[in-house]
Amino acid sequence: MIKKFKDLNYYELLKIPYNASSFEIRQAYKHILAIYEESSLATYSLFAENERKLILSKIENAFLTLIDDKKRKNYDNNLVSTGEVSDNILTEKDKKKAIPIFQTSRARANNNSLARIKKKIQENKVADLATNMLKHDHISGKDLRNLRESLGIELEEIFQATKISPTTLVAIEKDDVVNLPPKIYLISFLKSYAEALQLDPKQVVDGYIKNIAY
């Protein structure tokens, strides 16, 4: 039977799979908020004030629950114990977790791309730009992008070398805080990014985090 809106569980409400990554959760949250927020033309005439409040608070709860590993685990267990979803969905989820959506393992990185990038760096004389950037204690996504572009390196090549998804790379370069992955992933990504550009990872991570004031 088709579910009514008020009966949707948090995953259905956000339209995300049961193994959604926190990145997907953030995206879905942003997406659904744009539809139900007070100023949205799409639902302008649709709800009474209290109805909208209820919907928005359910969305808020969904987000805050699923984004928090511990709360999410409790919520999942509850879904299983009430029979809402079968528990193999959870085990599937764990299986998936072993291969996180963010490919952090550098062992899988493509060495050819790394070699190509290295060559470009050697050919280019942008050492000054890099040193200059690292002198500041704030490093923005824009700085990283400037450097990458000055080196003539495409985003695609960074993706191939680091296996960080292009959407995440774009979010990093745009300082798009809402779409950035959780901090622990972010740090690992920034390290890979820095290494690919042969920059000091620690300096890049510290500068970047400081800049977005995590």
């Binding site: 088709i2 809106f5 744009a34 539809i35 949205s40 033309l41 799409a42 639902t43 649709l46």
Partner: peptide, 19 residues
Amino acid sequence: VNENLGEQLVEVCNRHLYP
């Protein structure tokens, strides 16, 4: 006009009227 408006409206219809 918000370029996503059409898609948003459709999503609202699918959720609150009928899919």
